[in-house]
């Protein structure tokens, strides 16, 4: 029995415990062994909480398997799961990631009554006329006049923003924030961006230069992937 390969290895580091789970064995075997190991080392109630990182290697966990794992590690222990890391992702997830982080180029005028729905970032070459609407899960870049409605981060991403060569929108929407044009006649602005200002808790329109400070992640190519 002693020469049997260990399925679960625990390693201590300064940040906490790292739990390696063998990638070749069956999930049930691993869970049983993990259960035994964890139960054998019952901590005292006054011990500090230890953060645990689980490394799965080339193993993919289904949602219910992940829940089971969390249950075993977290209950009756002073462990706290910091992260569960796996080297593999589902093809669907990967494609969705790609879709969400891509810039889609559309060359069209969005006229009154038309709606353009995009997953990822939208780069529109053309105008959004009054009554027209563009919606994206990511950022909205418009090389043209924005007179209609633009909605960035439609799935709730507060860090998204809207840029247009000329901006005189009916409404700007970012995530769940909405701002509308003033009731008095006003001039539009050239080369500006709309983004959520956390301090004022509303959408503001500002010069493009502020993006460099407020949206640092924009410079990184894989920002969305990192954000998960």
């Amino acid at each position: 029995m002693l020469d049997k390969k260990q399925l679960v290895t625990i390693k201590g580091t300064r940040e906490g415990l790292i739990l390696f789970i063998d990638e070749a064995c069956s999930f049930n075997e691993a869970i049983t062994e993990l259960h035994d190991k964890i139960n054998s080392s019952k901590p005292k109630p006054d011990e500090p909480i230890v953060s645990v990182t689980v490394k799965l290697g080339n193993r993919y966990l289904k949602t219910e398997q992940e829940e089971r794992l969390r249950e075993i590690i977290s209950t009756e222990n002073r462990f706290e799961i910091y992260a569960i890391e796996s080297d593999v992702v589902l093809k669907d997830d990967a494609l969705r990631w790609k879709e969400n982080s891509e810039v889609k180029i559309v060359n069209q005028i969005i006229r009154s009554g038309q709606v353009l729905n995009i997953t990822g970032d939208l780069l529109l070459i053309g105008d959004v006329n009054p009554g027209g609407k563009v919606i994206a899960t990511g950022n909205v870049y418009i090389m043209g006049n924005l007179y209609g409605i633009a909605h960035a981060g439609v799935n709730g991403d507060h860090n998204t923003f809207i840029i247009a060569s000329y901006m005189k929108p009916t409404q700007l929407r970012i995530a769940n924030y909405i701002s509308r044009a003033p009731d008095y006649e006003s001039e539009g602005v050239y080369m500006e961006c709309g983004l959520i200002d956390e301090e004022q808790d509303k959408i503001i329109i500002d010069r493009l230069q502020v993006l460099a400070r407020k949206r640092l992640e924009l410079n990184g190519f894989e920002r969305r992937i990192q954000n998960g």
């Binding site: 006229r111 009154s112 009554g131 027209g132």
Partner: peptide
């Protein structure tokens, strides 16, 4: 506005 809609 309506002309824009019709053109679309």
């Amino acid at each position: 506005r309506d002309a824009d809609r019709i053109i679309g």
